[in-house]
Simulated assay, not measured.
Amino acid sequence: KRSREDGSINDLSTQRRNVFFELDGKIKTLNEMGTVPSCAMELLRTGTHGLDKIKEICAKYNYPTPTEIKMIYDVKTKKFNVAYQYKEICSAKTNISAGEVFMNWITAKKNEST
């Protein structure tokens, strides 16, 4: 049972999605949760499908597509919080990968907990 929240980061420019969980005050990646690989892949596939829908809606209404979406669901309060970025984050210009952004977010969350 998740004690507080899970987080996910989505990079729409490269269609990368990853998740982490906070369980009993400890941050754990999807790999560390011991999830059955097929279930983990389905979770990531579902998220990617959602990203495709967001891109379609933005294009349909001529609205800028977010370059990053960070989502947090708090299990205790049952509230969902989303933060969008529109600036270029992961690219050759920024020299930052989506993996680095994800790991930086995990590190920040771990630092918040201590």
Rank of each mutant, 00 (worst) to 15 (best):
K87L: 13
N62Y: 01
N18F: 06
K60L: 12
P64L: 07
K70H: 10
N18M: 07
N104C: 06
K53L: 14
L44H: 01
R17S: 02
T107R: 02
P66H: 06
N62H: 13
S91K: 11
K55C: 00
C90P: 01
L51P: 00
T29H: 06
D11Y: 02
V19W: 04
C39M: 14
T65G: 01
I89L: 15
Y73S: 09
E112W: 00
Y86K: 08
G34L: 02
M33D: 04
T65H: 06
D6H: 11
K28I: 04
Q15Y: 04
T46Y: 04
T46C: 08
K55W: 00
T94S: 08
H49T: 10
G25V: 03
S38C: 03
I72C: 13
N18K: 05
K1R: 15
G50F: 07
V19T: 01
L30C: 03
F80K: 14
N111G: 02
S91W: 12
L23H: 10
Y86E: 14
T94A: 06
D6E: 11
V82H: 07
A59I: 10
K53Q: 15
I27E: 08
Y61C: 01
L12D: 00
K109D: 01
V82I: 13
K87S: 05
R2C: 12
M41C: 04
V75T: 13
T67V: 04
G7A: 08
R16K: 09
P64N: 07
V75K: 13
M103P: 01
